[in-house]
Nucleic acid binder design. Sequence first.
DNA 1: TTTCACCTACCGTCCGTTAGGTAGGCTAAT
DNA 2: ATTAGCCTACCTAACGGACGGTAGGTGAAA
Lengths: 201, 201
Amino acid sequence: MSAPVAKVAREGAEGGSRRLILDTAARLLRSGGYHQTTLREIAEAVGIRKASLYYHFASKEEIVEEVVNDGVRFVHEAVVAALAEHAAASPHARLEAAIRAHLTALHGHGDYTSASIKVFTFGAMPVPDSVRQVRRAYGEVWRGLIAELQQAGAIAPERSPEALRLFLLGALNGSTDWYRPGRFDIAELAQEFAALIAQAG
Amino acid sequence: MSAPVAKVAREGAEGGSRRLILDTAARLLRSGGYHQTTLREIAEAVGIRKASLYYHFASKEEIVEEVVNDGVRFVHEAVVAALAEHAAASPHARLEAAIRAHLTALHGHGDYTSASIKVFTFGAMPVPDSVRQVRRAYGEVWRGLIAELQQAGAIAPERSPEALRLFLLGALNGSTDWYRPGRFDIAELAQEFAALIAQAG
DNA sequence: TTTCACCTACCGTCCGTTAGGTAGGCTAAT
DNA sequence: ATTAGCCTACCTAACGGACGGTAGGTGAAA
């Protein structure tokens, strides 16, 4: 059958396998979604037997949950950092920075964040509480930013902030369907999108 | 290596089962996506045995393909009809009408169109040529409308029409994730979204 | 008598998951 | 310095069940 060689042993200190499994799962979930991604696939890509996954995780759902939450948290932190970096900029510039950070995290860093959207958007299966919570926290960042923009006059006061938020996040996350590294430039896209929904200032 | 029978059957007469199967498949695909929706589920919901599905369709993929194409075609026709109805209106009003028609087809008529997005967005597996073709045709409608808006001055000439189109369609289709009949009004959403991306005229 | 629309029964494959075993390293008592 | 015991990180093998799909039969209608 298979040669059990693979005498690695001295791998990265401790817990290295866990991260490797998550990285691999993220990559596969990104392109295949929840049901198409199997534990056999993950195990094979990692280089271990599928049963060994159960040493590190209790179930498939636990793996997916961790990937999804990591992904959302990564985007969250990227956007918060971008806003902090542009704290003194104009509202329009802050919006553009936030959009750029979101898109960069989504497409640049990649697997975890894209997997997160693919798995969640595709719906299905009871969404764990932890996932809902992490996503809600990220939503708050945008709620705050939009309120700020509206207060500053960069967005007309009669626009519904909730509709705008859902519209914008939907459009940004939808970019996973059409964005390709060579064909678009993230900075340009961010500029385009920011120009659409807020007046320059 | 070709299908032995081109079974068109009597379309008008007694093709009730076929439609019923498609309706049911659309409903299940809408909420479950491709892999979670099984032939057993469909058959049980229809009230027949699973093997009987193969009297009407050659494979699962054939069922899904037909549902998806019907869905996109329905939205396509709804938007084209709305644009024809508002042929004499202002560019902004035409955009709003098109958005309203898209959202109405998506959420009002429902299952086929939502299933179409769910299955396609979720990506995966080789997308049949027919599906790609039907979607491309619909994309052309929006390309034309955006060009028209830009030419009329309702959209700034420096905006990238392709980025705008992808942004808008992504946002509209993303509404399947958050739209709930009671909590939002489609006409109001269309007004909001149109106001975001084109100047009133 | 042929065709239609469905049936029962079954196929091989793959799924997530579990049980139980083992090589190698660390720790602590002998 | 040896060794017993434990822990880690994997392994092989198998489980029941669900998957899409096929073979062949049946009663009613045409």
